[in-house]
């Protein structure tokens, strides 16, 4: 990847070398994602088998995994060998229910169960953040006061009602907030953090490439 940045890799490695490597990485990376699901099923199935606390709920987790995954994995048409076998048992018109396309069982479960629940889980954070603002957001020191005042100003500026309120103090006040707080102080600090983090990422990459960093392999 590093060499391909500096040189014309087609001339060095022959055509498509980089393409192959990147294609392979996307394939191997896909398997890594499923690895975690095996652990979830194993842990929950064990809890069900041992009838540990809340086991009926854990059973529902395992059932949900299969309810989502199995229809997605079934063939959608007769074009494959698996499809020929499946659709000799059930009508071929049922094929649209399988796979991951629109109107499939997988798609329905995602749109009407999984997605609304995930949206709600994160929506609950609004209540917690409001409660935290009430209980913990204190002007205990000069630094904390600076943070607090900026937060209040930005909260006002980012909503139409607050912006209308700020305009009472001058028509350019909202523009000044965007210019000096967001494009001034904020850009400066974000840039400092970006540069610092990028230096860290670059040095870590170099350590990995030189074999100094091997913790990802479980070695010190």
């Amino acid at each position: 990847m590093v060499i391909s940045f500096f040189f014309d890799n087609e001339q060095i490695f022959g055509q498509k070398a980089e393409e192959f490597v990147l294609q392979w990485v996307t394939i191997v990376g896909g398997f890594a994602l499923v690895l975690g699901v095996f652990s979830i099923v194993r842990v929950n199935a064990r809890a069900v088998a041992m009838k540990s606390r809340d086991w009926p709920f854990k059973l529902m987790t395992v059932v949900s995994v299969f309810a989502m995954a199995v229809p997605a994995m079934l063939p959608v048409s007769k074009s494959s060998n698996g499809g020929k076998v499946l659709f000799s048992i059930i009508p071929e018109s049922w094929g649209s229910l399988f796979g991951t396309g629109p109107n499939s069982i997988y798609d329905w479960l995602f749109n009407y169960l999984d997605s609304p629940m995930m949206e709600t889980m994160f929506a609950m954070l609004a209540f917690f953040i409001a409660s935290a603002a009430y209980r913990a957001f204190r002007a205990r020191s000069a630094d904390a006061t600076l943070l607090l005042l900026t937060a209040l100003l930005v909260m006002l500026w980012r909503v139409p009602m607050g912006e209308a309120f700020l305009r009472l103090f001058g028509d350019s006040v909202p523009d000044y907030i965007n210019t000096f707080i967001m494009n001034g102080f904020n850009v400066a600090v974000q840039r400092g953090i970006i540069i610092g983090a990028a230096l860290g990422a670059a040095s870590m990459s170099l350590r990995i490439m030189l074999g100094i960093e091997r913790t990802y392999m479980g070695k010190g």
């Binding site: 609004a126 009430y134 204190r138 607090l148 006002l156 909503v159 139409p160 009602m161 607050g162």
Partner: peptide, 20 residues
């Protein structure tokens, strides 16, 4: 959604002020 956003922002600001 902007009306709701405005009102809740004002509420959070109110919470911060009362809390302090």
């Amino acid at each position: 959604g902007m009306d709701s956003q405005s009102l809740v922002h004002l509420l959070v600001i109110f919470f911060v002020i009362v809390g302090n």
